[in-house]
């Protein structure tokens, strides 16, 4: 196995590879993330593909860890990427994961030992079909940046079983991902009860899963036990979708979270997507079924929207 950091000079070449392989939806820079973690190139065996790993700080079972989102790229010719160049090191990321198309999935499972976490589903509704409810005591403000306490929100999501793995969402990362300088026109909604931050959602109108101009809930952090927060944030999303001219509201959530049901009870239905969520845990216990039950993620985690 060869592991090395991606060189800055290779970023443009990498984007060209992704464009060629139909993976252009993996948007955004590879090197400029705020986590201070360099993207890596990972080549295993003699296969004709290698992995580029975009890495992110995470919490797994209350400990610090790294989650690596991978993209499959053709194994480059020596003249393009010199895989052997630079230090070879152990890949210490706790979990590598990918939201893959079926074609990508075949290569990831056959060539890189990825396991299927889930056939990815989405929640969707026509905007006018979303049933809104009163949210006493909760106010949502349209914000341009995140407060520091946003990092505490994932721990309050709740559910049974409780989420035990999630990519960290500190203020720096959230501003980088959704703030004014991020690609895309995101609308950040912060829910407060009094002065306390109790939830957030991020809206963007964008193409997703083969459909044009979807109203996407790119981020969703709400305590499942406090339904008023969800009601208030859904109202925010509907308002932004209407303002952006989106006909449908769409989001991804794990089926294990309370809001999976709250969204359905608000009128969103479940449909398949063209994506398969696959992963490979460094520890045996972090296998696909453990991740199915314990990993909280949203569209914010990947590069699809």
């Amino acid at each position: 196995m060869i592991v090395r950091d991606l060189a800055a000079s290779e970023e443009a070449l990498l984007h060209a590879h992704l464009e060629q392989s139909g993976a252009s939806a993996w948007r955004g820079p590879f090197l400029a993330g705020p986590d201070g973690l360099a993207a890596r190139v990972l080549a295993e065996g003699e296969g004709d593909t290698c992995l580029v790993v975009r890495r992110r700080r995470a919490r797994i079972e209350e400990g610090e860890a790294v989650l690596g989102e991978v993209r499959l790229v053709p194994r480059p010719a020596r003249a393009e990427f010199e895989l052997e160049r630079g230090a070879s090191s152990e890949l210490d990321d706790a979990v590598l994961w990918a939201m893959a198309t079926p074609r990508e999935w075949e290569a990831l499972s056959a060539g890189h030992a990825f396991e299927l976490v889930r056939t990815q589903l989405k929640l969707w509704a026509r905007v006018e079909d979303v049933r809104l409810a009163a949210a006493p005591g909760v106010e949502v403000e349209l914000a341009s940046a995140f407060p520091p306490e946003v990092e505490e929100l994932p721990a309050r999501i709740g559910g049974a079983p409780l989420p035990a793995a999630w990519a960290r969402r500190d203020r720096g990362w959230m501003d980088w991902r959704f703030g004014p300088n991020a690609p895309g026109n995101h609308a950040i909604g912060l829910a407060r009860r009094g002065a306390e931050l109790v939830g957030c959602a991020v809206f963007r109108r964008a193409d997703f899963d083969g459909a044009r101009g979807e109203g996407l809930a790119c981020e969703w952090l709400a305590p499942g036990s406090d339904e008023a927060v969800g009601h208030a944030l859904r109202a925010f999303l509907v308002e932004r979708a209407r303002a952006a001219g989106a006909e449908r509201l769409v989001t991804l959530l794990p089926e294990t979270t309370p809001d999976w049901f709250h969204f359905q009870r608000a009128g969103l239905r479940v449909a398949r997507t063209g994506y398969l969520l696959g992963a490979r845990g460094r520890l045996r216990r972090h296998d696909a079924r453990w991740l199915f039950h314990h990993w909280y993620y949203t569209l914010a985690d990947g590069g699809l929207a």
């Binding site: 499972s109 299927l116 056939t119 089926e255 696909a288």
Partner: peptide, 8 residues
Amino acid sequence: YNIFHTPS
């Protein structure tokens, strides 16, 4: 075995 689907 190829786990190919997680039905709901």
